[in-house]
Amino acid sequence: MAIRLLRGVLSGLKWALCAVGAVALILAAMIATPLERPPEMQSVSDSAKGVDWSTLPPLERFQARDGTWIGYRHYAANSPATGRGAIFIHGSSGSSGTVNHALTHAIAARGVETWALDIRGHGGSGTRGDIGYVGQLEDDLVDFVAQIRKSAPDLPLTLIGHSAGAGFSLRVAATPIMQDMFVRTVLLAPYLGYDAPTNKPKAGGWANADLPRLFALAALRKLGIDCCSQLPVLALAVPPTSAKYLVSTYSDRLMRNFATRGYRIDLPATTRPITIFGGTDDEMMISDKYAEAVQAVKPQVDVKIIDGINHMGIVTSPKAVSVIADDVATRGSGQS
């Protein structure tokens, strides 16, 4: 009887090992699935036309807590100064030196001292397309604010983000340690997370995700195995010759960090005023759904939709730039 019992145990163990092996092979095959880059999105590439680059400040750098040099650009406030400050977070693929310069320059021209940051993994900050761990971008921003406070200890700061940078800004606004750093958050054409009703499929052609690899890495994390997060999982529709200026792919950990945790999670946790700006002609987002989506979770969020503006036009079009720069320069911490 003992022999039969032993045989049964060994048989069960054999089948269990076979099942584990099969799952391992499936996950390995999913991780090995190649990431395909989408074709260039012309509306994004064309957004650089007409931007006055002659006023672009030089790239400066500060050292983050891990010793990495992080790039940023400082726009001194034009006289008369408003006694306000702003930090701008660019969108996916970009940096402080891309087309959002049209907006950051306009904000400073209205008397708001402005800083545009190269998020780690972009521009002059760290390794292109990757970071060390999820949460590192928040650590970098804390370090950057500390750098600003050396010369401007009491300047009230507004956090402004565009697209994926707006999703990250919402993540920041919901983080307890960072809530008191900013008096207000302004989200421009925000990516609100994979499950938001404001998303167009594949961001209108801008982004292509390696879903098998994403699912496999998520499954491994559920099992307590956080491996391979340096692998690219998201490809962006940048021009093939733009590697000097733009990031073409994101690693799993960069993609997870440079985003909101989900608007239904982050919005309820925010404590400071939030304003969302969108454009009626946004080719990546469904702007007319912003108000319904966010106000169902947080009724106090102010939503403004600008007629005739597309996704990149929100930071480049003179019409949108004027509206947003005026808003940042005149609305205070007590207004949403």
Rank of each mutant, 00 (worst) to 15 (best):
T33K: 14
Y250Q: 11
I89F: 05
G334T: 14
G308D: 11
A108P: 03
A237D: 00
L25H: 09
I131F: 09
L192R: 02
K202I: 05
A166I: 00
T158Q: 10
G83E: 09
P57T: 01
G204P: 03
A106G: 05
G165L: 02
L117F: 06
S333M: 11
V51E: 01
G205A: 05
I3E: 13
D327N: 10
S333R: 13
A22G: 14
V20I: 15
I314V: 09
G91D: 04
R221D: 14
G21N: 10
G262H: 06
P153F: 11
I225S: 09
T104S: 08
N208A: 15
V20M: 13
V321F: 04
G50Y: 05
A116F: 04
A19V: 15
D302S: 15
G279F: 00
T55M: 11
Y191L: 05
A76D: 13
R253E: 09
A116V: 08
T271I: 10
H101V: 06
S96V: 05
T270W: 02
D288P: 06
M285A: 05
L25D: 08
T127G: 08
I107W: 01
H105W: 08
L137P: 03
A32F: 11
L27N: 03
R7K: 14
D118Y: 02
A216I: 06
A291S: 15
N208P: 00
V9C: 13
A22V: 15
S54H: 10
L10D: 07
S229H: 10
P34I: 08
I87V: 15
T280M: 11
P201L: 07
D140A: 07
R221A: 12
K289S: 11
Q63T: 15
I87Q: 00
G161N: 06
R73P: 02
N199F: 04
A164F: 04
R256W: 07
A235K: 08
D154W: 09
A116R: 01
K304E: 15
S96I: 04
W115Y: 15
Q295V: 08
G334R: 14
S54Y: 05
P240C: 03
R37Y: 13
P318E: 12
D139V: 08
S43V: 14
G71K: 02
D327C: 02
E60Y: 08
S43I: 10
R184L: 07
D288G: 11
F258D: 01
M181V: 10
G85S: 08
L159Q: 00
T330P: 01
S163I: 01
